[in-house]
Amino acid sequence: MTTQRIIGLTGGIATGKSTVTTYLTQRYQLPIFDADVHVRKAIAKNHQNEKQSAYRVFSWMNC
């Protein structure tokens, strides 16, 4: 039985997060969820209520 794990990657600007995610995708074919991309899309769709938009994006993660 294979155990699925969620790996969180955080860090400051220019610390190599994109480099690591590119490596993980290319080497291990891991799916990547880029929170920045999804939050920007949610906020763009609903400027009036940014907190609700971000919540909808992350609700699947039980954050």
Score class of each variant (00 low, 15 high):
26 Q>H: 13
32 I>R: 02
23 Y>G: 01
15 T>I: 06
46 N>L: 01
33 F>T: 06
53 S>W: 00
55 Y>K: 11
5 R>F: 14
49 N>H: 07
23 Y>Q: 11
34 D>P: 02
53 S>Y: 00
35 A>C: 13
11 G>D: 03
12 G>E: 08
32 I>Y: 03
51 K>Y: 10
62 N>P: 00
34 D>M: 07
22 T>M: 07
38 H>R: 05
11 G>N: 03
43 I>G: 00
45 K>P: 00
56 R>I: 02
40 R>C: 06
34 D>S: 12
8 G>I: 07
34 D>V: 10
38 H>K: 08
56 R>N: 09
16 G>D: 06
32 I>E: 03
3 T>V: 13
36 D>A: 11
44 A>H: 07
12 G>W: 04
26 Q>S: 13
60 W>G: 15
17 K>W: 04
5 R>C: 11
21 T>E: 06
58 F>M: 14
34 D>N: 15
53 S>K: 01
7 I>M: 13
41 K>E: 14
62 N>R: 10
10 T>G: 06
38 H>E: 13
41 K>L: 06
20 V>G: 01
43 I>W: 00
26 Q>W: 05
6 I>L: 15
55 Y>H: 14
38 H>N: 12
6 I>E: 07
22 T>R: 12
20 V>E: 01
9 L>D: 01
49 N>W: 01
8 G>H: 05
8 G>N: 07
10 T>Y: 03
60 W>L: 10
11 G>T: 03
27 R>L: 04
33 F>R: 04
25 T>S: 13
41 K>Q: 14
55 Y>F: 11
27 R>T: 14
17 K>I: 02
60 W>I: 10
19 T>L: 09
25 T>G: 09
50 E>M: 14
20 V>D: 02
1 M>W: 05
4 Q>K: 14
5 R>S: 12
23 Y>L: 13
63 C>Q: 13
7 I>R: 06
48 Q>W: 05
49 N>M: 02
44 A>R: 06
53 S>E: 04
14 A>C: 13
22 T>N: 12
15 T>N: 04
45 K>E: 13
16 G>A: 06
1 M>E: 08
32 I>V: 15
15 T>E: 05
46 N>M: 01
13 I>P: 02
12 G>N: 12
22 T>H: 12
39 V>P: 00
27 R>S: 11
12 G>L: 10
7 I>S: 03
25 T>N: 14
35 A>G: 04
1 M>A: 11
22 T>Q: 13
55 Y>W: 13
17 K>A: 02
42 A>D: 02
12 G>M: 07
23 Y>K: 10
34 D>T: 10
46 N>P: 03
50 E>D: 09
28 Y>V: 02
58 F>A: 12
33 F>I: 10
62 N>C: 07
12 G>T: 09
28 Y>M: 11
27 R>A: 15
33 F>C: 08
6 I>G: 05
40 R>D: 06
19 T>V: 09
42 A>H: 01
35 A>T: 12
44 A>W: 01
42 A>Y: 00
48 Q>V: 04
22 T>W: 03
17 K>H: 04
54 A>Y: 01
15 T>D: 03
